[in-house]
Design a binder for these strands. Structure first.
Lengths: 225, 225, 225, 225
DNA sequence: TATGAATGAGGCTTCATTCAT
DNA sequence: AATGAATGAAGCCTCATTCAT
């Protein structure tokens, strides 16, 4: 049935085997990239941004120092990748929630945002600090710009939502971005609260407390709370 | 009339001169300590925690690097002193406000706290980061403990206040520390908001925004806003 | 008529095809070797000896890094091959010129030598530096020896020529190798002159200047210029 | 006789002692700087530019690696200092010779230049290579510029001289800078000649050869040699 | 045979702290 | 007491070469 001669069939089989192999290789390479990112993240969470070294990351993945530089051009690039991955997951959740909001569940974005960030406060704060540091030392300014543009896109969507609700008279009439900003601040504060060593002895019911804080957030600016 | 011989009288005069000199010396020494602290703070604000070196501090005070180590045992100690100083000034303002609250100005502590911290957000955040870093690297654990005890004392006062108002039915009945914690979070968030590069392009009226945020804080848990 | 059975006849045909293939392979292999050498040379000229990496060479030829090591045992070997190729082309030109000289064109060798080297001063100097570096790091001492023997052979021919002309009373009576050495020095200097950044702002007529220099060389030791 | 009181005289004596001490310290510091420069130079001559490391230099002076960076901001700065020192000594000799030339000893500059450079050909060539490398990697472009300006100043003086002699009809009428350039090339070539491994087996009378070469240089362009 | 991921020695530089003067 | 030169551990990154597939 085949129209191909033997040698061509063979060749084609070889090709397929070769492609298979190549794909396998590419996958393995990507896997390693992920291993590096995961190891870096784990170490960052474990020890904080201050003290993680390239050597530690390499040794955690059980590879040589140099291998890291086959995948990333610098330590900063590793960190930027982690930042983007985190930001993207956040943005995706938020988009879903904005969708829900447009279908009536008006509180969805606020909840989604708060819950996403507070779900893993250690990680959330880690990325804050990482970003700060990279900005402070002016490493990777273009990538940082890109990151901020990503956020701006989300902000714009949210602002429209707030504008709409102000128009309906449901929210106090202040510049719409006040809402997102205030909400961001509250969430940010909640994340910091989670970490604060000052509170660690006092707070016995962190979940309840965070619920309380989120509730504040959800009702910001409501004309009748 | 004098029972003392000439040389003794001279000696005594010398002594007095010596004491004078010694006192002068002590004062100068203390002054220098302050100079070091101020220089360190100025540099930290200017450049961020990452890049301030002992050498820079010394050169700003116009003394030798070694001299710094006559006053402080380590760079960390300098930073801890700054932390304490800041914390004390905050605590003192808060105490005054609690006093006012007991005389009826129920919102005084919240305002005082928020305003104190937001008055100089750069400094406020600087100290956050400094503390974090010192904790992360586990330098000076005892001093850090001391710092936290200082804060706990304040918290206890505030908690009593909240307890009282809950008893009066003015505030929702949640564990009293929820209030301080939530308020802390909001303030913390406001400080971060001030710095956030993500918002720097968007927020055109930072003062209004911070007012808005503070207003949220002042009304946390109020049964009728 | 054939004494061979079918399968043998087939086999023999396969063999011939195989040989064809093998020859083809060998040629391709040689071609690749040349590609590597050319790519290496191009990169060296473009970027200088400091910064060319094996990876760049491979990527320029569009082959894997490992493949390079199927053709050459080390980066140094590649460079040595380039050195030899250059030296051989120089020697060949010089031989032709010596031939001409024996037929009366007494200035041919000097011209040929000077012009060959100055024709592409970038390349000429590149090889100087390459050789120097290899000698300094004592990589490939045997190959370097071989290279020098090649040069010595040429020198010997030239020396005979100079000896003859001294005998004829056309040149000053100094050790014959003075002439080649002095001429080499002048040429060498001309090449360096071409590159010198110190002169790049001053020299407006490089061709004229080099002509001037070559003229000096051609008349070295002439009793009546 | 002294108008000063006892304490003032004491003070002044103290001052003098202090100044003495300070001067001593400064001198010691300068001495160390020189030690570093000398060690670097020695190692460069010994091993070539390729392989000298900061650690080697430090260990040769018997100091720690870090100390080097109290004196120089980078390895390149050390090398630039060496370059300047060499260039200055060359320029100074040349100035003296130009002075002599103006008093009639017309060949003084040519001799001085040639002899200065050929006096220590190893060093001379080392500095060539060093400069090349620094230029190639574009480290310290301002310092390199400065160096070239230094040379240009000298060139200008020499060019005037050649112009004058051309005007007198003593030299062939070519652009004056041809003379300096050609002479530079010859000298450069002589230096390279000295090092050439290709000649090392052949040249038995290097001094005679260099004399021969210098003689060529001294008579460049002379209308009657 | 061809590949290119992996290696790891080795280079430069920074900076808190020490210590002789 | 004051100084600041000296220290050296520690960090990041490069690249020729190897080797499993």
């Amino acid at each position: 049935m085949s129209q191909l001669g033997l040698s061509e069939r063979l060749k084609s089989r070889e090709d397929r085997a070769g492609m298979e192999k190549a794909r396998h290789k590419v996958e393995k390479f990507k896997q390693r990239e992920n291993d590096i990112l995961n190891a870096a993240l784990a170490l960052l969470i474990e020890q904080g941004e201050e003290s993680v070294t390239v050597e530690q990351i390499a040794s955690k993945v059980d590879i040589g120092k140099g291998t890291i530089y086959k995948h990333f051009t610098s330590k900063t690039e590793i960190y930027m990748r982690l930042l983007f991955d985190y930001e993207e997951s956040l943005a995706s959740k938020l988009k879903d929630a904005i969708e829900l909001a447009s279908k009536g569940d008006i509180k969805a974005p606020a909840r989604a945002y708060f819950e996403s960030r507070i779900a893993n406060p250690v990680k959330d704060r880690l990325f804050q600090r990482l970003e700060e540091k990279i900005i402070a030392l002016n490493q990777a300014p273009e990538l940082i710009d890109e990151l901020h543009q990503m956020r701006n896109a989300i902000q714009t969507s949210l602002n429209k939502m707030f504008e709409h609700r102000i128009g309906e008279g449901k929210l106090k009439d202040v510049p719409p971005y006040y809402y997102y900003a205030a909400y961001w601040a509250l969430t940010q504060g909640a994340v910091e609260l989670y970490h604060s060593k000052s509170f660690s002895g006092v707070v016995q019911d962190m979940d309840g407390l965070l619920e309380f804080v989120m509730d504040i957030g959800v009702h910001i600016g409501n004309k009748q709370s």
